[in-house]
Simulated scan of single mutants.
Amino acid sequence: MAGFAANPIISYPYTADPSPHQWSDGKYYMYCSHDKDTDVDWDMEDYHVFSSVDLVTWTDNGIAFRKTDSPFGKGALWAPDCMYRNGMYYLYYPQNSVIGVATSTSPTGPFTNAKQLYSRTDAQYVYDPQIFVDDDGQAYLIVSACMKTGGFKPVVCRLGSDMVSINQETILNINGGNFHEGPWMFKRNHIYYLSWGGGSCDYATSTSLTGTYTHRGTICNQWRDVNGNLIRGEQQHPGIAYFSGQWYFASAWGAPDNKRRQIFMQYLNFNADGTIQFITPDMKGVKAPELLITGGL
């Protein structure tokens, strides 16, 4: 029986922007951007998909999509997300200031037939797409928009049933905080949680999908190395998921710098009032889900 994972759970190839999912085959999947070995900037050229049966040991399934597969430019590929619906896997990705979508019949790709999905005339660029599905089954695209008037805004877009069209879009308002990039939304006890990265991973909550959201605090802005030393570090993109009765938080830390990153995973826990407990990731990582049931936390 598998024991604890060791952080980072994905150490090579260098990857960031984790998007964790569990599909109907029971396996866990992580969709990640890929930092090149010689990167001096965030200039990712492809996406890798990692899979696991226990959240402890992860397999690299290779390149699922290259920027040369995209029909609308040669720009870098930043944070992706994936969704399964209609018998198809949909890969959402940002490139050249727009959001694209490609499809595959396999969760690990290759993803093909890419097309442009979304852009904004009032934004310099939009990036870091995430797909959120509400309790009624309606799917939404969440993105960060860098506005031409200055600042970053979270935007929620209602997706059509075909998953490749936009029916409605709304800019979300947040009271407090400093929204930047890597939006990740989830729902717990009828409360919408909007988290984001860019320096630290912060979050805001609302009783309505379209807000207004209220900033609640920081989830993570540091980690503890193998010697127990606290290291401050930027967290560009949270990936939050609920598996087998437990919430999980994934993000990336620098290895050895913030241009060549590695993925860590830690438990995400809540206080009685619904606020999120601050996380200091360590090298221990998480247990396989079956151990949470038999052995507890």
Rank of each mutant, 00 (worst) to 15 (best):
W78S: 02
T103Q: 07
R158Q: 12
P8R: 07
F72V: 09
S33E: 15
G254S: 09
Y12R: 10
D41W: 09
K74E: 12
G177N: 05
H237W: 02
K287S: 13
V156L: 01
A114D: 01
Q236K: 08
E290M: 13
K36R: 12
P8V: 08
N258D: 12
P256V: 01
R261T: 06
Q277D: 00
T294H: 05
S70M: 11
D54H: 02
H21E: 13
P238W: 07
P281M: 10
V40K: 15
F243R: 09
A102S: 09
Y242G: 03
F72S: 14
Y28S: 14
S144Q: 07
Y203C: 09
Y14N: 12
G109Y: 00
F278L: 06
E290T: 10
F72Y: 15
T59N: 15
L172S: 05
W23K: 10
D136L: 04
T57Q: 15
S33P: 09
G75H: 03
P71N: 07
G73C: 02
V226L: 01
R85G: 12
I293F: 10
P20K: 06
N167S: 02
F152R: 13
N269G: 01
D60Y: 06
D134I: 08
M185Y: 02
D69K: 04
V164E: 14
D60C: 11
T103A: 03
A16P: 09
P80W: 01
V286A: 12
P94H: 08
V286M: 12
G245C: 06
D35M: 08
L159A: 08
I10R: 06
D17V: 11
R188D: 00
C201L: 06
